[in-house]
Simulated assay, not measured.
Amino acid sequence: MSTHPPLGAKLVIATHNAGKLKEISALLAPYGIECVSAGALGLPEPAETGTTFVDNALIKARAAAEAAQLPALADDSGLSVAALDGKPGVYTADWAERQWFEGDAGRDWYMAMGKVEGKLAEQGPDVDRSAWFSCVLAIAWPDGEHVTFEGRAEGTLAWPPRGTLGFGYDPVFVPEGRDQTFAELDPEEKHRISHRADAFAKLVKALFA
């Protein structure tokens, strides 16, 4: 049995991303949980000042729980590359941010994939191309209680990018045991083996088993 407080019937998903809300809502639907996004509630996005995925997931979950006075779930995820000492890691999205002088403000994931590949190429043709996606799910309650669950998907990096079904670094990530990138896999198959699915399975076991 879970030693954590019950989630109740309503859970705030600490995101302003409609796609992420849809994905997490679908995962929680079988458990009778109604999900509402922080964006729909008009909650501000806190600064993600942590140095680990756990730090940032908790920052987001705690801010939403306190503001809404409801349990809140947040996730933080990213790509780590063995040969780059685990980078980009918690700074995964930052590697895709264009600077003001580069024009077209916003995230450019092809540029980010190119940065990773460029740093690998500097180490020569025999560089270790192993990598992993991490996902931390954090749930926080208004009284300060919290719990985190971490999932991983191991794989290797391909080049050039392949596939159009994913997002972020998906076109260069080939999950272990497959020969297609995350962006080439059917979305249902990707979600079944992804780092988020791994973390969510641990959450379900702890809170709903």
Rank of each mutant, 00 (worst) to 15 (best):
T52S: 14
D198T: 05
I24N: 00
K60N: 13
K119L: 13
S25C: 10
A138T: 07
D186G: 08
N56A: 07
L41N: 09
P88K: 05
E48Q: 10
L73T: 09
I13Q: 04
Q123K: 13
E117D: 15
P125R: 12
K22S: 15
G168Y: 02
Q99H: 13
G42V: 11
E145P: 05
K202W: 03
G124P: 01
H191A: 12
I59V: 15
P5F: 13
R178H: 11
L21M: 08
A57F: 10
P71R: 00
C35P: 08
S130M: 03
P161R: 09
T51Q: 10
G19N: 05
L43P: 05
P175S: 10
G50W: 08
A29I: 13
S194M: 11
H191V: 06
S2I: 11
G155Q: 03
E188Y: 14
G50D: 02
D170P: 01
E102C: 11
E184F: 07
R107Q: 15
K10E: 12
R98C: 01
N17R: 03
A64V: 13
R152P: 06
G144R: 07
P44R: 13
P71Y: 08
F133E: 06
A18Y: 10
T3E: 12
Y110H: 14
A209D: 14
A138Y: 03
V90R: 04
T52Q: 06
A112V: 07
A38P: 08
K190R: 11
A47L: 14
I139L: 14
K190S: 03
K205G: 12
E117I: 10
D128V: 10
T52A: 00
E122I: 07
S77I: 12
V174K: 03
E48F: 04
H16M: 10
T92V: 09
A65H: 13
A64P: 07
S130I: 05
T156Y: 08
